[in-house]
Computed example of a mutant assay.
Amino acid sequence: MWPDRRLIDRFNIEFPIVLAPMAGAIDAEMAIAVAEGGGLASLPCAMLSAEKAREQVNIVRQRVTAPVNLNFFCHKAVDADPAREATWRQRLAPYYREHGLDPNAPVNAANRAPFDEAFCGVVEELKPEVVSFHFGLPEPKLLQRVKATGAIVLSSATTVKEAIWLEENGADVIIAQGAEAGGHRGMFLTENIAEQPGTFALVPQVVDAVKVPVIAAGGIADGRGIAAAFALGAAGVQIGTAYLRCPESKVSAAARVALAQASDESTVITNVMTGRPARGVANRVMREVGPISPDAPAFPHAATGLGPLKAAAEKQGRVDFTNLWAGQAVRMGKEMPAAELTRALAGAALARMSQLAG
């Protein structure tokens, strides 16, 4: 019934639906549920240690025999800039005082580690069926080792130029991430968020420019969106925001309320939360300091100063400093088990494609 079965056959999954690897919002529980529903399980590893990533994979392996996708960041690590950090702390100082916190007190540094030797060792040891990257690809030697395990390599492109680069440098499948998508922009050849095309414009142009299968990502949250992606030439879809209100999601109770109340106008692209452009539901600090601020330290160091504020506000049931990463289709999210949602998405897509064909 699916017009393009390349990903179904290559990933050995029932439905061409990839769980978006949403760092901090999901873990093995969500991955297992989506696998049980027939989609591709994804585990976000960017905020984990190598040991924790190994533990998460083992949990999935114990529960399901389905393939798993391990996701990593490929950003170039940047040392913290003390002067810029001080300016940032000064900008956030009124919030610290409001919450009875000392803006000069030492805090734990934000942890978003790029793919390295340790993570490569985890991939070689555990041999996940799929390995995906954000912000490009790792250095050639590491990528060669990943591919030697037999893993299928995915990476995100936000422009046609990035998609061509990814194909030329070893990606087996390309995720075309439109501007509607939640979370960090996968951009790595440009920093201009104003020029990023939307999913509907990006996907067919990427499909025309590369030979490898293309996964559509951004603003897809129901069967209509999946059917549209296939009409544009995609071989599959990556969905994240639609799963955020599932019981397996790790977002807080306050975050669930904010997501449930969000509308099509609620999300913005901001650099305030981490120092790198990402789309999320606007919160207090994003509105008052950003959404784009020149004071925000480089990724991921902007998150360091926000850590104590996030913890203090969340204790009061507020998400004023919490990164609620979500795409523009946030209001289309469902409160149902993730396995059930995966099957419902696939069924609705097949029904819509059947209507269009008939």
Rank of each mutant, 00 (worst) to 15 (best):
M1F: 04
D4M: 01
I8H: 11
D9E: 15
N12G: 09
A20Y: 00
M22C: 01
I26V: 12
A28C: 04
M30S: 00
I32T: 01
A33R: 05
V34D: 04
A35K: 08
A35T: 04
G39N: 08
G39E: 07
S42A: 15
C45S: 06
A50T: 11
E51C: 02
E55W: 12
E55F: 12
Q56I: 09
Q56M: 13
Q56K: 11
I59T: 14
R61L: 04
R63N: 10
A66N: 05
V78T: 15
A86Y: 01
A86S: 11
R89T: 06
R91V: 04
R97N: 02
E98V: 00
H99R: 15
H99M: 14
L101W: 10
P103Q: 08
P106W: 09
P106E: 09
N108G: 14
A113F: 06
P114C: 10
D116S: 08
D116E: 04
F119D: 08
C120Y: 09
G121N: 09
V122H: 12
E125F: 01
K127C: 14
V130T: 11
F135G: 13
L137Q: 14
L137D: 14
L142G: 04
G150L: 13
I152P: 13
V153S: 11
S155Q: 13
I164H: 01
I164Y: 02
A181C: 05
F188S: 07
F200R: 06
A209K: 12
V210P: 11
V210M: 08
V212T: 15
V214S: 05
A216C: 10
I226N: 02
A227G: 00
L232W: 00
A234V: 06
V237A: 12
Q238I: 12
T241W: 08
A242N: 07
Y243E: 00
Y243D: 02
L244H: 01
C246W: 00
V251I: 15
A253S: 05
I269R: 12
P277M: 07
R279H: 09
V281E: 00
R287T: 04
P291D: 06
S293A: 07
P294R: 10
A296N: 07
A296S: 09
P300H: 04
H301W: 04
L306C: 11
G307S: 09
K310S: 05
A313Y: 08
A313T: 14
N323T: 01
G327K: 03
Q328H: 04
M332K: 12
M332V: 11
K334Q: 15
E335S: 09
T342H: 09
A344L: 07
A346Y: 12
L350R: 14
L356N: 02
A357S: 15
G358Q: 08
